[in-house]
Design a protein around this nucleic acid. Structure first.
Lengths: 307, 307
DNA sequence: CTCACGCTTGAAAGATATTTTCCGTCTTCT
DNA sequence: AGAAGACGGAAAATATCTTTCAAGCGTGAG
């Protein structure tokens, strides 16, 4: 008897299932008795609500009896109430997901928390898609090649971009590369002086015009290091000193959603791509290094006791 | 009819994960017993098929007993099998109508760069969706309330989670809150001692069993601070000392895609939600503070000279 | 190496929900 | 007005779900 779940699906082949049940109700309503119509109406009007009800509950809500509810379910083409309920749950889920994409608006001060979550998640997903679509594969490939062969890697970033810089440095270290992230401009410059051909310097800056970041990249550039700029502005000052430019996406920002959020997401994706690319190229050494770092951390995690 | 009431309450409090089910399975799988994992796997793998089965049927199919099936349903957050089945039907309907959840292959060593980018972007998008779907709004709301009223906020995280901790600290500072991120366990503990009621401590750890993070949270907890855990394992040791638990999603990982990547993405979304939530609640003071911080940084950006 | 403990598991009893049955009531047509 | 037939609901019967309990299994201590 359970096999009739597919009814709602097959019904959906020609007409979208959401409308399918409502349509069925309308079609069959004339042949229904008064009580059954009440049930059908309730079901069509609030699928989600009815799906949460038992036979008894629905009977009570419509002021009828269990028997009538079951009879109605039968009339609508289901073997019993149980299956109608399942179909109802499916319908509710579809309606739910269907109205989801309406969250493109800006985040407002009085948005309820669930809306905030939905909007943030949606925006970040959008940022990821944009970034992936906008990445120049040639530039990325060149950057990966340079990194994979690098003797030493220096990464510059401040504030939010500084965290991205650290993230990349952490990852590269885990696969055995020598990488360091600087957020102190002075240290960055003094270290950049020691770079030379075969080393790589990466500048991460959304605006592309952060002086504290441009300066060390310029120094590295002039000392012969291969330089990479990860920026949202491919025409900004920082690109003057960059051999390879990786463009991050720029999403609209608002008062409650500072640009730092989406630029960070975008930068992280780029950085992840660099990392995976390098790990691929240096797989022979990267794989054992990764495994070793896992192992080294194992004892820092207590055995899970709670359960 | 008492169970009807129960149904309504549980349904309203903890979101009956319609789309988040696959994510939830992944999150909770580690804490499951073998038999329960088999059930969870069957359910996640074939929602439509399982929705058509009764408890007995599913037990037979997975080679277990009814009791185990019910236990699994409970673990996944439903009051009983009946409700899991309803959610399953919803999921099936969504999959049917919506985009087929293309199961992207793992990243291989010899994947060309464009594939790597596409897969990474897709995976991170998936992670975002899972996280948003799995977030407990009640917990989030409570955490936001605590943060908005906090006299002082301390955030603990090491390695990749340390960067997330810093990200949150940076953001809170920008809207005028007193926040500090610790990645040094000793400093974290010594600072935790000074916390008291009205202060908030946040632990960020994917595994939930990082001793260096649990310890400061425990100290903060015992000194009367409100404690929040951001973890991928809602049943891990860290949650013992957490007043509010925010669950991040757990994506499958592979050799070239360390778990740190998706957990970081997930954690960042949660942290962003916390930030926006707090900014909303304290808008009167947050807005001017944000504006001021923009202004303060303006002179650090040279006018764009290129082009 | 053995024992004891606790966790896991499934069988069966117990509780709920669904379906069926059956009978009273209400409508409608003659 | 009376009777046939349709309608609707209470309650029994059945299916389904939940809980309990004891046996099985693995694990760690002695």
């Amino acid at each position: 008897m359970s096999s009739d779940l597919k009814e709602i699906f097959t019904g959906g082949t020609q007409a979208p299932a959401p409308a399918a049940l409502a349509a069925k109700v309308r079609t069959l309503a004339p042949s229904m008795t008064r009580s059954m119509q009440r049930v059908a109406e309730a079901v069509a009007g609030d699928p989600a609500g009815c799906a949460a009800l038992t036979v008894t509950g629905l009977a009570e809500r419509t002021g009828t009896s269990e028997a009538t509810v079951v009879r109605t379910a039968r009339l609508l083409g289901y073997p019993g109430y149980r299956d109608l309920r399942l179909a109802l749950a499916g319908l509710a889920a579809q309606q739910q997901s269907g109205r989801a994409p309406a969250v493109t608006a800006d985040i407002a001060v009085d948005d309820p928390l669930p809306d905030v979550v939905a909007k943030l998640a949606y925006d970040e997903q959008q940022t990821l898609a944009d970034t992936a679509a906008g990445l120049d594969m040639a530039q990325l490939g060149a950057a990966v090649t340079a990194l994979a062969a690098a003797r030493r890697v220096e990464i510059y970033g401040v504030a939010a971009s500084g965290l991205v810089a650290q993230d990349l440095a952490q990852k590269l270290l885990r696969i055995g590369h020598i990488a360091f992230a600087h957020s102190d401009p002075h240290l960055a410059v003094t270290n950049a002086v020691t770079l030379r051909s075969g080393d790589v310097a990466i500048a991460i800056t959304h605006s592309g015009s952060t002086g504290d970041i441009i300066e060390p990249l310029r120094v590295a550039f002039e000392h012969g290091a291969t330089t990479i700029a990860v920026t949202g502005r491919p025409d900004s000052p920082v690109t003057q000193y960059a051999d390879h430019i990786l463009t991050t996406s720029t999403a609209r920002e608002s008062e409650l959603r500072p640009a730092a959020m989406s630029s960070r997401t975008s930068q992280l994706l780029v950085v992840d791509c660099l990392f995976v690319g390098v790990a691929q190229r240096t797989y022979e050494t990267a794989a054992p290094a990764l495994a070793a770092s896992y192992e080294a951390l194992a004892h820092r995690h207590s055995p899970r006791t709670t359960r």
